[in-house]
Structure formats: structure tokens, C-alpha cells
Nucleic acid binder design. Structure first.
Lengths: 328, 328
DNA sequence: AATATATCTGAATTGCTATTCAGATGATTG
DNA sequence: CAATCATCTGAATAGCAATTCAGATATATT
């Protein structure tokens, strides 16, 4: 089969376009080809290295903050993504996802089992994980379905799209995330199909999870928890949540009825997974992140600058509180 | 006055765009600015050298042919522009103009007087001559107006646009190119205004001229010469033309009535100008170019590959002819 | 403090580039 | 020597980038 364009032509086009700044339609005229082909020739020029574009190093991570976060919370790894003008909300999530993705990709094993949870921030990152060949990963849903619809930020969807790009296998937890009571949960977990997935989860090599704060809970938004439920959880000392597990300041699961109604990775499972990568964006996640870290549930944290700063500041304030308590 | 964008922001934007291939609208979102500003930041990045784009050398000139042409015709300088797929016509003219312009710009003096003639090819080159500050050039029209309209390829227009970019002065030859007879010409040349310009021409430091073939004459096209006139000229030995001067094989002006009816630089004027840069495109110009070169009228030749090849080949054939003549 | 001047900004627009599509072309196979 | 396949091609198009414009903002000047 004939193939590849002559170097001479590629260089001719590249020179006119990149050096002389002649537009593609004009280059096309001079080179006696269509504009479409000029565009293609330029792509070839870049691929072949005939055109080289280099950008002075830009450090997208706040290394100073990373160090502090890592040390204060005993994490293996912290990735603090710089955000333009301390962006918040969607913009910050996109930035953290963009910067975190290649780094997380490097952390994930190339074979074995990965547990994945849902969330907007996890989605931003997961969508940007580069596709790779030759990986034979099993991706497992870390928590049941939040409601009967599948949102594009649900673990179900993220896992599906991941294995589509990676070519592995995706195991779903075909259960709701929250069931009425302990008995219901146990009966679900007795199903052989579900049990098998549950065992995979228990032996996962890595996990990719989000961290939920007590404000703006996605569970409340989607109607599976009421604001009153959330209040009750707060009363019981909950400061945040991972995989449906509500945590107290120390990162222990709060002892509430919900504890037995969740079908999702529990605290002890997370603790023994060698690589738990948590993603969180925003200052309001600080308490929840701190709790998860303190409980040893997460090993790597991917976070934005505002979140990291709140995290570090919050740590200091919490140190003051015990001092207050001593006064009482 | 405030000025210049922070390096940090420029690098941030440049990295996203050039390394991560994120589109400008998306970069804009992440950087919290408008797409317009991203475009501007990228321009700054290129200007500051934060982004460097390098293209493997492309040699736009056919050095081998240049050498042959230079040697065979005793030229100071020959520029043979490579043309994609041996392009002809407009495309070849544009290519030669594009490649020749920066080289011609380097050859032209930065002060003094430059004579300029018209022509499609001259236009292609002149339009691409880079603007330069600090030059105090006087540009002089080398030949009268061909007809009463001013076409965009006429010396009048080219000179005007050149000094507009260069900031010099443009002197026009306010006469027709062809007048009815010698007496008319002499009377024109006696006008003090015209005489002054003529004297400038006579002392020009450089000239930029096209070369006309006996086919497809612009003069015939514009109705100042009839096809019969052209035939008569051919009968008198004319093989080409410079500034309205018809030349024989040896580059001497043909002795015809037209000789005294042209108001334009003559052969002796051209011969003594230190830098005469002639531009010609196309194989059909070969004889005319050869004649001009042989007559010592031009010092530098800018030409396309097809033209140069015809030139070289023609030279060989002309050598054969004298051999024939000996037989007679 | 008020004005003048220069620069900066994003919305709209224009013009350019990358991709999609349908058809052509040439290699490869039975 | 078809038939098949993969690639290549330019026209059309969808999407993207550079420029223009009018208004905003900051600095310098009086």
C-alpha cells in the first residue's frame, strides 16, 4: 500500500505555515493541494518532528502545599492542582481533573482490580484518564446505585466508559446504594452474583473515590436522604462521607442506622486497599477530607489549592479546639 | 502605564493549548478569561519565546540550477525558487515572489534610488517585500504609463504601495510609455519635471524589473501594440523586452521605430545601474531572459525552476545554432 | 481632582482550520 | 484479472481562533 507523504512536501508546507505565517488556503495554492491536505501535512509535520513546538515548563502543581498536606495528614501522596485565580466550582473541578488525570494514571496499576466511585469531580478526572492498550484491568463499582436513574457522574457510568477506553472488564454492583435496613442489605449481599463482586471489591488493588461534605450532599439532591437525615447524621458527629459511609472527625464511621443500610465499600475495606486515590475540590470539603485522611482511608489526595488551603488551615483550628476542651 | 501579562498566566495558557491540546474556549474557562484573551496570551507566549516553534530547514532554492544559471550567463546572483510540482502561471509567480522577496529585500540598498517597473511577477514580489523603518529610499517609476488606466500591476501602483510601507518618496514618470514618434518623446523629456525624474533614473542605485517575452505581451493585451507590431518586432530580431525596450538575442536594443517611441529606461541606463534585479517566471521567458543577461542588462535574476531549466536548455541549443551557421 | 492618553477587556464577527464525507486510487488477494 | 481492501483525496462543513469594536480601566499630566 502506498503511504506517507514526502518529507520535502511536508517541510515546504510547514515552513510556509509556521515560519512565514502564510494561511492554509494560500499554502494550499502554492503547494497545489487542497487546504484539507495542508492541514493533514501539518499534522504529519508535527508528528514527524519536522515542526517542534516546545513550551517553557509550567508547574501545574503547588508543591509547597502538597508537602504540607502530605506531612500533616500522613498521606503517601498529595497532588495540589494550581487553579487560575483560585477558581471554584466547575472550573476548579475541570482544572483538578485535567492536572490530576495523567498523574493518577501513573499511580494506577496496569493490571488487577480498581474500585471506582461516582461524583462530579471523579468524573472530571476519569474522563481525562488517557486510554491505554494492554491493560487488563477489572473495574468494580464501589457503591450501589444512588437511585434508579443513572446519571453521568455515577460510578456505573464512569466505570463503563473507563473500560470502554481501556478494554478491561467492568463489574457492577447491581444493588441500590441505600436499603431500608440491615436485613435488606444482608440479603442483597447474600446473592452469589453480588457476593462475587463484593469480594473483588474487598481485594481491590486500588480505588478512585470522591469525598462528600455534609453540605450540598448529592444524596439529598437525588432524594435518597432528606435534609433531616443529614441533620441527624451531623448530630451524630458526621463531617463527611466516602462511598456512602459517614465519617466523624477521626475518620471512623459514625454509628448511626445508616451504617447498616449502605451497600458500598466500608471503612475497613478502604483502609486495606493499597492505593486509595481520593479527589476533592473546594474549601467546604476540608473537614471531610481531613477526616478521611485521619482515618487512614485514603493514601493519595488530589485537590485544588483552595481546598488544600482550607485543609491546612482547618487542621490548625482543630488543634486549638482540644485546647478549648481542656478548659471546659 | 500598566503593561504585559504575568509570565505565570502566559505559561499556564500556553501549556494547556500547545502541550495538552485544549481548545481556546476551554482554556479560557480554566484561565477565567475570554477566548479573545487566550488568543492574545498565546501570541505573547510566542513573542516572549515561552512557546518556541521550530521547523526543520527547508531549502526553498534550487542551488544547483542557480550555480549553472549564474555561470552560464555571468550573473552576479541567481535565485531559482523551487516550485511545487513545477507549478506554472499564477502559482509559480506567487511562489517566486514569496521566496524571492526576503532575498531581494536584502539586496536592495537601504538608501538611495530604486527604479521600479511593472508586471504581474514584479507585483507578486514587491507586495511581499517586508516593510522596514529607517529606510529613506526614493523609488522611481522606470517606464511611462502603459495606458490611461492604472492597473494594479503597473509601476505607478507598485511604487506607490512600496513607499507607503517604506516611508520613502515615490517619483512618477508622468508620461505615456509609448508616444507616436521621436519628436514627441524628446518633447516629453524636455519638460523640467520629467527631466528631473529621468535624471534620477539615470543615477539609480538599483532597479527592480520584469522581463517580457514576445508571446502574451502585456502591451498587446492593453492595446498599445497590435499583434502586427509584435510580428514586425520579431522580424527585426526581438526576442524579449525590458522596460519597453525590445532586445535581440545578444541583448542589444532592436533598431526599430519603437526604439525612439518608448519612454522608459534604456539599455545603456540599465547597464550602468549597479544592481538590476530582474524577475521572470515561466519557460516561455527563457529567450528574453537570456538576451537580457547576455546584454549585461541584469545583474540578479529571480526565476522559477521551469524558467531556469528552459534557460539552461536554451543556452545549449543556441550554441548549436552558430555551429549550423558555420555550415551555411 | 480632573482630564488626557494609552492600554486593556470581552462580545461579536470574520476568517481560518480540522474533520467528515463520498468518491477515487492503487495495492493485494484469490 | 477481477475483487477486495486500505488508504488517499478534495469539497463541504462544523468548529475554532484572530481581529474588530466599543466601552472600561489604569496611569500620567495639569
Amino acid at each position: 500500500m502506498r503511504h506517507e507523504y514526502p518529507d520535502e512536501q511536508v517541510r515546504f508546507v510547514a515552513k510556509l505555515y509556521y515560519i512565514d505565517h502564510v494561511s492554509q488556503p494560500k499554502v494550499a495554492r502554492l503547494a497545489r493541494v487542497s487546504q484539507a491536505k495542508v492541514s493533514r501535512l501539518l499534522a504529519v509535520a508535527r508528528k514527524r518532528g519536522i515542526v517542534r513546538i516546545s513550551v517553557e515548563d509550567y508547574e501545574p502543581r503547588n508543591r509547597g502545599l502538597e508537602q504540607i498536606v502530605r506531612d500533616q495528614f500522613g498521606l503517601e501522596n498529595a497532588i495540589v492542582a494550581k487553579t487560575a485565580g483560585h477558581a471554584t466550582g466547575d472550573v476548579a473541578r475541570a482544572t483538578v481533573g485535567h492536572i490530576g488525570a495523567p498523574l493518577v494514571s501513573g499511580l494506577l496499576p496496569s493490571s488487577g482490580t480498581i474500585a471506582i466511585a461516582g461524583g462530579r469531580t471523579v468524573k472530571e478526572l476519569a474522563d481525562r484518564l488517557p486510554g491505554r492498550d494492554g491493560r487488563h484491568l477489572v473495574v468494580v463499582q464501589a457503591m450501589g446505585g444512588i437511585d434508579s436513574s443513572i446519571s453521568e457522574v455515577d460510578a456505573m457510568e464512569l466505570g463503563r466508559s473507563l473500560v470502554q477506553r481501556w478494554g478491561g472488564r467492568f463489574l457492577t454492583l447491581t444493588t441500590p446504594a441505600f436499603v431500608p435496613d440491615r436485613a435488606a442489605r444482608d440479603s442483597f449481599l447474600r446473592f452469589p452474583q453480588i457476593q462475587a463482586v463484593w469480594r473483588r471489591l474487598d481485594q481491590a488493588d486500588a480505588a478512585l473515590v470522591g469525598i462528600g461534605a455534609m453540605s450540598d450532599s448529592a444524596f439529598v439532591e437525588r432524594g435518597v436522604l432528606t435534609p433531616e437525615d443529614l441533620d441527624a447524621l451531623r448530630q451524630s458527629g458526621a463531617v463527611g462521607e466516602i462511598c456512602g459511609r459517614f465519617l466523624d472527625h477521626q475518620g471512623r464511621e459514625c454509628d448511626t442506622p445508616w451504617k447498616d443500610r449502605v451497600i458500598g465499600m466500608d471503612v475497613s475495606m478502604l483502609r486495606k486497599i493499597p492505593k486509595v486515590i481520593a479527589i476533592a475540590v473546594g474549601a467546604d470539603k476540608a473537614q471531610a477530607v481531613a477526616a478521611a485522611a485521619r482515618g487512614g482511608l485514603i493514601k493519595t489526595l488530589v485537590i485544588d489549592e483552595a481546598g488544600a488551603e482550607a485543609l491546612v488551615a482547618g487542621k490548625a483550628s482543630r488543634r486549638r479546639r482540644p485546647a478549648k476542651n481542656k478548659k471546659l
